[in-house]
Simulated assay, not measured.
Amino acid sequence: MAAIGEERQAYAGDADHPLGAYAGAMGVYAAGIAALAAAARLTRRSLPEPTPWDVLLCAGATHRLSRLVAKDPVTSPLRAPFTRFRGTTGPAELDEDVRGHGARKALGELITCPFCTGMWIATGLAAGLVFAPRATRLAAATLTALTGADLLHFLRVRMQQAVGE
């Protein structure tokens, strides 16, 4: 057991880097995948063969939902126990610092990072394609449409700025 503590110290140095909490998060993720696989097997669900359209749809949905969870002002009450508000970073996005130590810090890092939440969201969408494909495609299409609308908003602002220059 002392060797684990020594490795953690050698890796993190003086930084607050909660390796144990990260390992716990990976364990929860792996257990979730195992539970989903067991449920699919028990209910005799066949694995879908995703089309390129499914991949594109899920990519757009994962992008939008991960930004919504990690950066949106409306979802800030979910992040508040783990973060400190610093300001805004762009249109409808907040800048927050992670606070706390151990599991609190690891969870704060997870829910403020769109790249980190994206893995969990994409996994949820994949599970949805196994257990409720029509509802999942509808939800993914809605989120992907929102992603497209966001891109159009940004393009319009850029065009307005170019004309004003």
Rank of each mutant, 00 (worst) to 15 (best):
A2I: 09
A2H: 13
I4P: 01
I4T: 14
E7Q: 14
R8V: 15
R8I: 15
Q9C: 08
A10M: 13
A10R: 13
Y11W: 12
A12C: 11
D16Y: 02
P18V: 02
Y22V: 12
Y22G: 11
A25D: 12
M26Y: 12
Y29N: 12
A30H: 07
A35E: 02
A35S: 09
L36A: 15
A37I: 00
A39N: 06
R41C: 09
L42D: 14
R45K: 03
S46K: 09
L47F: 07
P48D: 00
W53L: 15
A59I: 05
A61T: 05
R64K: 10
A70G: 07
K71E: 04
P73S: 01
P73H: 04
P73E: 00
T75G: 11
S76D: 07
S76H: 13
P77Q: 06
P77N: 03
P77W: 06
L78G: 00
L78S: 07
A80R: 14
A80H: 10
A80F: 14
P81C: 05
F82L: 02
F82I: 00
T83H: 11
R84T: 00
R86E: 06
G87W: 08
T88K: 15
E93P: 08
L94G: 03
D95S: 12
D95A: 13
G100A: 04
A103C: 09
A103Y: 04
R104S: 00
R104I: 07
L107G: 02
L107I: 11
E109C: 05
L110T: 05
C116L: 03
T117S: 09
W120N: 02
A122I: 05
G124T: 01
G124V: 03
A127I: 02
R134K: 13
R134A: 10
R134Y: 11
R134V: 09
A135G: 04
R137I: 01
L138Q: 08
L138R: 12
A139T: 00
A141G: 01
A141Q: 03
T144A: 12
A145E: 03
G148W: 00
A149N: 10
A149G: 10
D150R: 10
F154D: 10
F154P: 08
F154E: 11
R158V: 05
M159Q: 14
M159K: 12
Q160R: 11
